[in-house]
Design a protein around this nucleic acid. Structure first.
Lengths: 247, 247
DNA sequence: CGTAGAGTTGAGTAGCTTCAATGCCGGTGG
DNA sequence: CCACCGGCATTGAAGCTACTCAACTCTACG
């Protein structure tokens, strides 16, 4: 009785178990059996929601955990030397944050919530240890990192070969696809990041982002109102994003 | 007797064991004890040397193994859609090739030898299995991937915020550092890649690479003759590479 | 010694940046 | 409740970086 009460209280408070989490089919424990998932569940630490602008962790602080996004979104920002910040990633629900901190023992960038955001904290030493006895978990972890590597390569390609138009088209089609996979509308969504964030991420000046958004709008590709986005012609955007011959 | 003969023949032929490999302090088995290294050694497959221009594997072929570079160098090239190739990485001895193929089950790019090159093939299923019982090996694998993630982020920063001069300065300082760590001269080395490769990698036109090399030379930063490079003022190059405010 | 590919050099230009001014929206205090 | 303020976003004009195109030279290799 005490048990069920506690259980119920916890789950009402923060929907606290992986098994009942709507993201479990996308998240790290994806491949696990029920009893294995319990083990995994046991090492997770829930966190109080982050408010917009709050940091999950800061660049240089000691690496202890990776985090799975439960709701909301975040950005990762790296400050190097004297230079300005570089925004290296946006994170959506079910994605894993902090994997690039494993070697070097500290986080290589600051991760900040773009809106009210909840995350699951997964202490890395315990995750590593558990991955010893759960091959599926280990595999999933390898796959997550590998996927991030491939995404990074795609980003390099974007930054070195694509025009500003193609970059923005890629940005929208990629977001659209990510929303679709998570069960949201791929055509209509709200951007949680500012134009400055988008520009920084894509290697463009804010003004350029703004101008091209305007052009896309007049071409009937998207309808943008502030941070509200409606994708009107996804095929055309996709074509534009993949198009040959930049420069 | 038969045993020792076989052993001797193998080691003469291709210096076949991790324990006698001069790279072991940089390579994957770095953290392993002697007896563990034997286990690791047992799963490695040696390969005939690749000639210049030969592919280690091609984009889209099934992912089976990762490879450790033993000598020589390689480039990774990704062809996407109709667009041109994108060169995403150069690999030097002790570095691990193919980690971005783990998920998706096929290699996301073609890897080609830039000169005569030898590699050790490490079948991934056996590596994964071995990593179950060898935590140090597992940790090293996580760290390798994590490091690659961080390097990618640095590359993104380079591509989106740095001027052509800064990119080339970064390229030289990074190469210099990598040679130094491997026990070669950080000041004098031979480029195994063409100007076109460098340009593709750095997101610059060949002509731009050539022009800036000329300028660096006239500024007394480097002496370049064909593919032979002498770094004359490493501190200045480093300063230039890290310098504030691009664009 | 000749040729093909690699590398250099020059001229003109496109695309994006920078600087500057103005418009819009959402939150806060009177 | 409304007016004001500050940050975010848009728009315009001018400038510069790096690209393209084109011609030429060098170098490696048969």
């Amino acid at each position: 009785m005490a048990d069920t009460l506690t259980g119920r209280r916890r789950s009402v408070l923060q929907e606290t178990r992986c098994q009942t989490c709507s993201l479990s089919s996308l998240c790290l424990p994806l491949a696990l059996e029920v009893e294995d998932m319990d083990q995994f569940d046991a090492i997770i630490r829930r966190r109080a929601p982050l408010k917009k602008g709050e940091a999950l962790f800061r660049q240089g602080s000691p690496f202890t955990s990776v985090f799975a996004v439960r709701s909301g979104s975040l950005k990762q920002v790296t400050t190097e030397g004297s230079g300005e910040d570089q925004l290296t990633n946006f994170y959506l629900p079910s994605e894993l944050v902090g994997l690039d901190g494993i070697d070097e023992e500290h986080y290589p960038g600051t991760v900040v919530a773009l809106e009210t955001t909840t995350v699951c904290e997964i202490p890395f030493d315990r995750l590593d240890h558990l991955s010893e006895s759960l091959p599926e978990l280990r595999g999933q972890l390898y796959r997550s990192m590998s996927k991030e590597l491939r995404d990074d390569r795609r980003m390099m390609r974007l930054l070195s070969r694509k025009t500003a138009d193609q970059r923005l088209a890629s940005f929208f089609t990629s977001l659209s696809e990510r929303f679709r996979r998570r069960g949201y509308s791929p055509y209509s969504f709200r951007l949680s990041m500012s134009r400055a964030d988008i520009g920084n991420y894509l290697g463009l000046a804010v003004e350029t982002v703004s101008r091209i958004l305007g052009r896309f709008q007049s071409q009937g590709l998207v309808a943008v109102s502030g941070r509200e986005v409606n994708i009107l012609d996804l095929p055309a955007l996709t074509r534009l994003a993949e198009e040959e011959g930049a420069h």
